[in-house]
Design a protein around this nucleic acid. Structure first.
Lengths: 193, 193
DNA sequence: CTCCGATTGCTAGCAGTGCTAGGAACAAGA
DNA sequence: TCTTGTTCCTAGCACTGCTAGCAATCGGAG
């Protein structure tokens, strides 16, 4: 029993090593620089070993993404619980979201732009994803009024996502980001609170 | 003179042929299926010929994108001018935008997700891009109130872009799209008009 | 302590990618 | 007719994701 347990533990460790290496490499040089060969070299194993852990490169990105959801949820939660009134809570949570997307852009891409074979708007989605979504929901709940909260969260989330992706893609000038964010929030807080 | 003119004309024709082939192939099988080899085979020239027209694959995608902006601007304009009142105009323009992104998803990706070396929020941006942005601006102008129109357009555009990209990436359930769109519009029309 | 069998991880390779160097063939002007 | 310049192709480089098949290692049985 103990031997097999040790092997499984080592295997799990190595899996984490791969995921961490992928994330670090992606954050340093972007996802196009993350190749199986470079990852294998980095964790000091041959390429086929990586394929015994993950079905392919997409699966590695998905694993990195799942880690990212936990990070995002934590940062959103910290922002929300530090706020005093609901209006400010929405502002700081939104700021935390866009800051996360900017600061950890490769991670954000893995979560929201690249991988597709990850369940999202279903109960099978990773718990961390539900947690992050829940933080957004709580932040915007006071502004819901008669609107469906889940739907409103999705729409506001879309707004944040659109802002950061268009800005990061060079479609929107970076300078006006704060003004745009404030404008988005003002349109979602009118006539409530 | 005439010989050189003929050559330039033929060259321009061939360039259009390449762009069209790239767009058709992308719309049929997605951009990852568009390779220089397949394009070369399709236009019945060798690969280096394509490189004499475009610096690389990204440049081909950029050319396809520029074509796409013209199409999008035309569809938005048709929707806006067909509307009767401002409130409905914003609704039909928004619907036209998301329908375009859905129906011509590969083209939309080239325009808003992939290429970066294309100027956007500057005067050097392609005229068709300004035209499309202007249509959105006109549609939302009646809802601007005291807000800066350009900034508001960018924010509303971000909302639309977020909705379609998250939905197309499987992050939002397709079924509720119309309700989400209506909700977005309602948040941008309160207290005006 | 020895030997067998299964697991592990390697080398080598396939088919494909974007892109380019070099030369052949053709067309235009002297 | 010969030279010059352009056009375009063949062949190849360095790389990608991924896999087949073999060598070595290690755990358990006798």
């Amino acid at each position: 029993m103990s031997i097999q347990e040790r092997r499984e533990r080592e295997r799990a460790e190595r899996e984490r090593l791969i995921i961490t290496a992928a994330r670090e490499l992606a954050e340093a040089e972007g996802w196009e620089a993350v190749t199986i060969r470079r990852l294998a070299e980095r964790v000091e194993y041959s390429q086929p070993v990586l394929y015994s852990h993950f079905k392919g490169k997409d699966a590695i990105m998905a694993a990195v993404a799942v880690e990212g959801f936990a990070d995002l949820a934590a940062e959103l939660r910290a922002a929300r619980t530090a706020a005093t009134d609901p209006r400010q809570a929405l502002a700081v949570v939104s700021a935390a979201y866009t800051a996360f997307a900017e600061r950890r852009s490769a991670l954000y891409d893995a979560m929201f732009s690249h991988v597709v074979d990850l369940p999202f708007a279903t109960p099978e989605a990773p718990p961390a994803l539900h947690a992050a979504f829940g933080e957004l929901s709580e932040a915007i709940r006071p502004q819901a009024g008669d609107d469906d909260l889940g739907l409103l969260t999705e729409v506001f989330w879309s707004g944040l996502h659109g802002l950061v992706t268009l800005m990061r893609g060079g479609r929107l000038p970076r300078a006006d980001h704060d003004r745009r964010l404030a404008l988005l929030i003002s349109r979602f807080t009118r006539g409530s609170a």
